[in-house]
Design a protein around this nucleic acid. Structure first.
Lengths: 130, 130
DNA sequence: CAGTATCCTGCTCGATACTG
DNA sequence: CAGTATCGAGCAGGATACTG
């Protein structure tokens, strides 16, 4: 059975499950965003923080390191005057993109459906966004 | 209480993001499994509990209700002697399957890679994937 | 069998402060 | 700029007990 000592009881549903494995990676609801913003081009720590405004440095750092330890992201330190680091997706990391896109696709539908269902159960015409 | 009220600060990254939307659904690391086990055929509450041994009734119930409220799952009460209920995926719910499969696919690779990295640490550096 | 209520654990997150 | 340490808060989840 695979997975080593997966955290604790919580966040550790079925053992050795591929699905759980990648899900654990997308954990925290931030990792997918990190991967997403990294997909276009390599980005620096600060840029990612800017891309994902509400993420804290603590969490971004943690996710990045986790992603790196799993071989999904690479970290390259540039020795510029103010030290900077550049993160990029590895080929394996890129394989997560289709899944993320598929998720986003359904998410889009869920949003549409939700909006439809709440404002016009019979004739949805007006689309008011909060 | 749809999903407009974005829980709290935690678990509420970017606003109105499709990705976040579906991710919120897969939240808890259990929902995907529920969907997965429901994909083959409709199942009853107890069967799902059996399929996913470590899930508690409380959580399974919560997930099922959430999935139902989002229109991803239907619930049908059968009036048998001991009352039973049957859950099934809706067409929309089925649209989540490709995403889940994509996730599982990458998960599989992650596990393989991890196992490789642990049993052949010195022989083969696992830097490059594939 | 199906499902809910209560209690308790602990993980993840954000804010803040600090180091290299 | 990049990243870590500490602190407190909130939510998910397990276990158990109980109802229909």
């Amino acid at each position: 059975m695979g997975l080593p000592v997966r955290k604790s009881k919580v966040t550790a549903p079925p053992p050795a499950c591929p699905l759980t494995e990648s899900l654990a990676l997308l954990r925290g609801a931030w990792a997918p965003n990190v991967i997403w913003y990294l997909s276009a081009e390599p980005r620096r720590f600060g840029e990612l923080r800017h891309d994902i405004p509400r993420i804290s440095a603590r969490v971004l750092s943690a996710r990045l390191r986790e992603l790196e330890s799993r071989g999904l992201v690479t970290r390259r330190v540039l020795d510029t005057s103010p030290p900077s680091a550049e993160y990029a997706l590895t080929p394996l990391g890129r394989e997560l993109l289709p899944a993320i896109e598929a998720l986003a696709h359904v998410g889009r539908k869920l949003i549409d459906q939700w909006e439809l269902g709440r404002q016009a159960p019979r004739a949805a015409r007006v689309r008011r966004v909060a």
